[in-house]
Design a protein around this nucleic acid. Structure first.
Length: 110
RNA sequence: UCAGUUGACCGGGUGGCCGCUCUUUUUCAUUAUUUUGAAAAGGGGAGGAAAGUCCGGGCUCCACAGAAACACGGUGCCGGGUAACGCCCGGCGGGGGCGACCCUAGGGAAAGUGCCACAGAAAGCAAACUACCAUUUUUCUCCUUUUGGGGAAAAGUGGAAAAGGUGAAAGGGUGCGGUAAGAGCGCACCGCGGGUCUGGCAACAGAGCCGGCACGGUAAACCCCACCGGGAGCAAAACCAAAUAGGGAUGACGUGGAGGCAACUCCGGCCAGGUUUUUGGGUCAGUCGUCCGGGUUGGUUGCUUGAGGCGCAGAGUAAUUUGCGUCCCAGAUGAAUGGCCACCACGUGGCGGGAAACCGCUGCCCUACAGAACCCGGCUUACAGGUCAACUGGCAAU
């Protein structure tokens, strides 16, 4: 699993499918790599530095928990929200699983 | 035991599962060598403020080095510490607190200029509103046989600056004498000014002498004095790779003026980090060819061994410093240093038991402020809760 490093990669993912949710926004787009890529975006408006770090870390742990849901040759971007700080980890994982299912069925439909 | 002051310190712990990053060793693969990749094992991995970016440095670039004047900015009791500081330590002066202790932008107002709102008669140069005293005139009135005497009011002249009121501040304060009333007019004490002596490295303190007192405040107003200061910053800067000039290097012709075969010398122009001057220094018209190459993107270096930490001993009241020993302690770059679960502490809410201390059950926060970004020394600001030491005041007991 790659992690996204370039601004262009994030912009590319933003042009793909978007699933908004309570804890995060999931973005997905096709990429030129064999494995799947993952990136996180937490803006400054979400809190100060330790809180932003914590949002990213919990998201990273949730992604690891539902790793089979990610498909190869695609880039995913998770835009964190402040509610992650107070949420239970199990509900966060459930949310992510649902969002992944949704993003893939949308793709099949469209 | 209660209230308080100062200083120092900690800022969750244990176990399990999963994960990130750096590094060492080994093995395997790869590569012409360097190298690159994978796996396993071992080791390291946020803070007291990492923050604000407010001072002081190191380091890098601005081609390089020095001097003087001016401008601009900063600092401002004294002594010490330090690489340095606007920081720290010790002391002095002033202010506050019963006290431990705390606060303090604290040079110069007899170099000059300015300002002193409102109020007040008057705000800087002496003046006088009410009230005070003396005296003259006028009016009224009382006493008186009369000459005359007393009282009140108004106006004028003079004296004085004590009382009232204003203000942040009114040309020393308190008391006694003195006087028509008063006044440093005189005296005592305090304050102030100027010498002297003593103590102290000094800031300053103390003693005594002289002077009746002049010299109001404001320099976080201009200013004066002393001292210090070039600018920009790791997105600095260097290198590598990839696509294009207006820049750079190099070769040829050729190269400011004079002298000389030449090296070079003299004269002239230009360049530089606020301005000017100066001592050195560098440089000197153009054309053509070749190579490199700006901005931008990616990578590598810079990048962590340092005014370093810890321990012991010595010097010093202390800040700090000297010697010896020992240790290597984050290096990320869409940015690692963690996520989840359980238990235990700690805090807090509720219920029950108990005279109380407290105990049991059950929730909540499952922790405050806050995340390295080149590195140090400080300052400032934020911070749940807790620990220790020394000291002060009160109460109780001995």
């Amino acid at each position: 699993m790659r992690h996204l490093q370039k601004r262009s990669q994030f912009l590319n993912a933003a042009r793909g499918t978007q699933i908004p949710g309570r804890f995060f926004v999931l973005q997905k787009a096709k990429a030129q790599f064999e494995d799947c890529g993952i990136g996180f975006t937490v803006t400054k408006r979400m809190g100060n530095s330790p809180e932003r770090n914590r949002i990213k870390r919990r998201l990273r742990a949730a992604v690891l928990a539902c790793r089979p849901g990610f498909v190869a040759e695609h880039d995913y971007v998770l835009i964190g929200r402040r509610k992650i700080l107070g949420a239970k980890f199990s509900t966060l994982v459930n949310n992510l699983e649902n969002a992944l299912r949704q993003v893939h069925s949308n793709k099949a439909a469209g």
